[in-house]
Design a protein around this nucleic acid. Sequence first.
DNA 1: AACACTATTGGCGATGCGTCAATAGGATCA
DNA 2: TGATCCTATTGACGCATCGCCAATAGTGTT
Lengths: 194, 194
Amino acid sequence: MRRRRLEPDARREQILSVAIRLFGAKPYAEVSTTDVAREAGVARGLVNHYFGTKKDLYLEVVRVMLTVPDVALEQLPEGELPERASSIVNWFLDVVTRHSTSWLAATGAGGMADADVHDVITEAVDHAATGVLRALGSDDPAPAMRAMTRSYVGLAIWTAQEWLQRGVLTRDQVHALLVTALISMVERVFPEAL
Amino acid sequence: MRRRRLEPDARREQILSVAIRLFGAKPYAEVSTTDVAREAGVARGLVNHYFGTKKDLYLEVVRVMLTVPDVALEQLPEGELPERASSIVNWFLDVVTRHSTSWLAATGAGGMADADVHDVITEAVDHAATGVLRALGSDDPAPAMRAMTRSYVGLAIWTAQEWLQRGVLTRDQVHALLVTALISMVERVFPEAL
DNA sequence: AACACTATTGGCGATGCGTCAATAGGATCA
DNA sequence: TGATCCTATTGACGCATCGCCAATAGTGTT
């Protein structure tokens, strides 16, 4: 058996891409490190060598899955609340649509839901909440306001899953629901909560 | 070793209660069938005999965890929308508070998030959505309306977790957020979505 | 007291994971 | 070009868990 020797970065990247594909297609428990190694054309021990434990590898995969280019977040329209809400929701739906499969795998069924994974997802949600708050013009919100925004992001995630997995709602309906919910939250809840 | 012989129902019940306790305290992967058997004072093979595979046992556990006495759902106040919304939210928060640990384990971190488990949770969410819709006086809603209500239940679950795990929000704030969101949804989204 | 029914046991085989000493690819240098 | 060194890579060992099934032993019945 002829073996090929790669730069550590390249090998790591290759194994990671295989893992992303497999964990995106099947749930955690149904993907063995043997599978990853075989598809990468590599000994199983090498996977452990680069990523430590299997859970560590999965955490890396989830991190990549949830990492999202937030360039678009920097250049949001200046208009009134409805315009800003609409555009941030559109941005979110675009992201989810583009990475739908891996995104569903990371947040919904197919994951692992252990404590560490939960932390990674929580961090991503918090990041998204920051983006939403910034889009609303609030750069340094009160803790309660930030917490409620995290809940809103949860609604967005949940609704996106409902949309993509069940197919009952149209994108326009999802958009309307999320925009309305966001505006209502800002107008009716935030003023009283602070 | 003296062994005790029980009625199948009793033995099954006993093992199940042990499993509920363990799966409520530790995530799926960290609970072995050996643990369950040991704590139940029983051979490991017996667990398989009564519940089949480990996942089957876990599914049974999640079902029990999510099963909720919906007697209170039958007798909801007759008042206007705000009153009805407030009482259904209160009912939900009461349930979550009472079964908080097992409830968090079933819906959030600590679970397994495989496809079958996801189905069980989805079913429970759908059941809760039915309750909400009934509280709103809608017994046979359009599919889109039902789907949006499922999303709302998702918001409620997410917010409850935010509340119980992070402790940033107070119960009153959670209540206000959920009631407002529900009313907004009914008033602003449902009329246009149908 | 002997029997029959079946709840219960304990061990077998398979699979997956983490680790580590041994191996060999390939760049460097004489 | 051929010897040498560094380290990327391998393969196997030990351990844990799981599903399965034939053997065993409670317990009510005759």
